[in-house]
């Protein structure tokens, strides 16, 4: 197998607070191959968004990357000077956010914003830039793109706005797009459309994607591989079909059981007891132990990282493995 496009290893991102250091990302390692879609799943506060921002060096102050490396084509980009990181952002790794009504600037036309993004990495005349923007809008399925370029974000529907954001992210044909819950703020019917289209776009352009979501269902329809995050760690990862069919980590099992599609009509949805632990007061050892049905006293020790073929998991008592 060729070298991965992105190789993240031992990534730790911390936020100092008055009550102590919050380890939002706590030793995360994964790889993304060219053209591959990796789904990053977890509850709110599990550190999946911070992981995404860490990859492009945009952690909000006072947070910082405390340890680990992010290798893009073999070159570590953690701690690069700001202008070198800037040259990567948008050009090689770009990002799409959750709520398109918040990400686009309400007082600039869509065309102006696209031109700014274009000119962040290229010297290009206004005329050529405009043609590129029209092509980019066309690619994401916006009708009458030439005229729409002079519209403002509020003149688009939610789904169309997100398409504009996606078009901006794809302007420079990046190697990797980090999509942070890009369909969460949209209507369900629009969600499905955007999912299908983004998957097709990734295939056509050979762009790899990290699809961040709390929704296992959307991720499973998108991703080639998934990584499940809990309390700042990846507790299980592997090919999507395998992980969903035969989860190893009790947390993944819990997530799957709480999917509405699995329950019978009239039956109560299963839910994981308890709540996500505060990152300030993590229990020793496995952070999921207090909520875990299989927990034993030994879970207060660090769980071992098990590697089984193309999948990994972090558990003392994994499911489906004969001891």
């Amino acid at each position: 197998m060729s070298a991965p496009l992105l190789d993240v290893s031992g990534l730790e991102t911390q936020f100092p607070t008055r009550d102590g250091v919050v380890r939002a990302v706590n030793g995360v390692s994964f790889t993304v191959n060219r053209g591959e879609i990796l789904g990053l799943v977890g509850e709110s506060g599990s550190g999946k968004s911070v992981t995404g921002f860490s990859l492009i060096g945009l952690v909000d102050a006072p947070g910082r990357i405390a340890a680990g490396s992010v290798k893009l084509d073999g070159r570590d980009i953690v701690g690069l000077p700001n202008d070198e990181l800037r040259a990567i952002r948008g050009k090689r790794i770009s990002m799409v956010f959750q709520d398109p009504s918040m990400t686009l600037n309400p007082v600039l036309t869509v065309g102006d914003q696209m031109l700014l993004a274009l000119r962040a990495h290229e010297r290009i005349s206004a005329g050529d830039g405009r043609r590129r923007c029209v092509a980019a809008l066309e690619q994401v399925g916006i009708p009458d793109p030439g005229r729409r370029l002079d519209s403002y974000p509020h003149q688009f529907s939610g789904g169309m706005r997100q398409r504009v954001a996606i078009a901006i992210a794809l302007l420079h044909k990046p190697d990797l797009v980090i999509a942070d819950e890009p369909t969460t703020a949209l209507d369900v019917s629009i969600q499905a459309q955007i999912l299908t289209e983004m998957k097709a776009l990734a295939r056509d352009t050979g762009t790899a994607m990290i699809w961040i979501s709390h929704d296992l269902a959307t991720v499973s329809s998108m991703a080639d591989r998934i990584a499940v995050m809990y309390a700042g760690r990846i507790v299980e990862s592997g090919p999507t079909a395998t992980v969903l069919r035969d989860p190893r980590h009790p947390y993944t099992r819990g997530l799957l059981d709480s999917l509405p599609a699995i329950a019978q009509a009239g039956e109560d949805l299963a839910s994981i007891p308890g709540t996500t632990p505060s990152l300030l007061k993590l229990p020793p050892g496995c952070p999921f132990a207090p909520r875990c049905p299989r927990a034993q006293p030994v879970c207060a020790n660090e769980p071992p990282l098990a590697v089984e073929g193309d999948r990994t998991f972090l558990c003392h008592f994994p499911l489906g493995v004969r001891a």
Partner: peptide, 11 residues
């Protein structure tokens, strides 16, 4: 998010 998105685009 507007500023975050602009930064993420490499501005």
């Amino acid at each position: 998010d507007t500023v975050k998105f602009a930064r993420a685009a490499g501005l």
